[in-house]
Design a protein around this nucleic acid. Sequence first.
RNA 1: GGAGGGAUGGCCGAGCGGUUUAUGGCGCAUGCCUGGAAAGCAUGUGUGCGAAUAGCACACGGGGGUUCGAAUCCCCCUCCCUCCGCCA
Length: 424
Amino acid sequence: MLDISFIRNNPEVLKQNITNRNLKGEQFDVDAFLELDKKRSELTTEVEKLRALRNIGAQKTQKPSSEEIEKGRKVKEQIKEIEDNLRVVDQKWQLHMDWFPNITHESMPIGSDESGNKEIKVWGEKKIFNFDAQSHLDIGERLDLIDVTKSGEISGSRFSFLKGDAALLHWGLMSFAIKKVTQRGFSLMIPPVIVKSRPLYGTGYFPAENDQVYELTQGETIEDEQRRFLVGTSEQALVSYHMDDMLDGNNLPIKYAGVSSCFRSEAGSWGKDVRGIKRVHQFDKVEMIYFTTPETSQAYMKEALEIEEEILQELGLTYHVLEMCTGDVGLATHRKWDVEVWLPSQQTWMETHSNSDLASYHSRRLNIRYKNKDGETVYPHTISATAITNTRPIAAILDTYQQEDGSVIVPEVLREWVGKDVIG
RNA sequence: GGAGGGAUGGCCGAGCGGUUUAUGGCGCAUGCCUGGAAAGCAUGUGUGCGAAUAGCACACGGGGGUUCGAAUCCCCCUCCCUCCGCCA
């Protein structure tokens, strides 16, 4: 959510930002919003004047005369009428506020889709096999590591069984990443994976991306407070951990590493990455969350990238880093880098990590503040970045480390968990 | 799941229909005092609109209602505590 006074003072900046992001729809109509905002101010002023009248009447009259009671009754009716109007205007006003995107960072390229993303770094060699290389799924099925047939029967499409050494690879990756982030000063958190709607609203998944979310509750008359959802990332629970909190500014940055399963309905992604375990409804992730001062968020975003790169380098996976463009990021994003790993058998990149500076977009929605040295209330910036996930890195390892004899070399840093040097 | 008891500012804690415009304390900030500090004293210390140290409104877990007037009464919801039940 944006600061309302920022919008009032810089409507052109917001309009330009909406254009840059290639957003379309009534909810992004800034002029209509400003009209509503004006109307809302007028009605608010009006209703506040009447309330003042009511308060004066109520304060000075211990035993009101029947005349005074009659006067109060009239004021009450007027208040109700204006409040009803205000409620309608306010709802429309809020809808715009909920949909307006964060202002993007100046270094983000302007583009309408993923083709506008800019490669800012490449690390490692693009491996060339001198034998007939297989995809991660073919390797996984041949070595009895991945079973998507059984999971299809049991859970539906886009689920998987990770078996035997692949399950050990999973634990290895998670443990390896946990070791890395705790060494870097993150407090480890195991959050709930079922949340209410407010954390999802607060982290920008509602209303904009609600088609990605699994809802557990049913019934049309259910109160919003009683609805429950599966998290798509531990970010949703971890950032919300501090909702309505007044943080101690001296403790910033706060760094949490969340470990959880993540659930995504993947609506609207039909046909993308269908084969194997590249895009599934359930995966596991170690996520890094920062709460920082506005001045330092960019520096910590770089720190997060450094950690991500260190993890991939030690796994020996070839990757590149993308500066995401304005048209390929969510509404909450201020700046975002994606890290993609090279799949040599497919001759293609696959996203394994993302790293976002959300500025104060989340903290405003979740009412997270701290007092700075001048005693002013400040909304901290939040950063969300992937340390590791299980499925895609496993796919990348199988692909990258396959050998001509059909076996797969285990990356050195994972051997203590997998218990062997070679699978198969 | 059942039965009770609770939720008040950064924190603690009064108030239970009308000088409460939220008492009091702690913490914090600023000033006075001091060689410096502590102590003491004074002032300030929720949010919005606003140029404003002007005003007004809002705010007592959230939402709705009753009333001329609600932190206070009623209804719904959430969370916490105690006991019972169930259970890795």
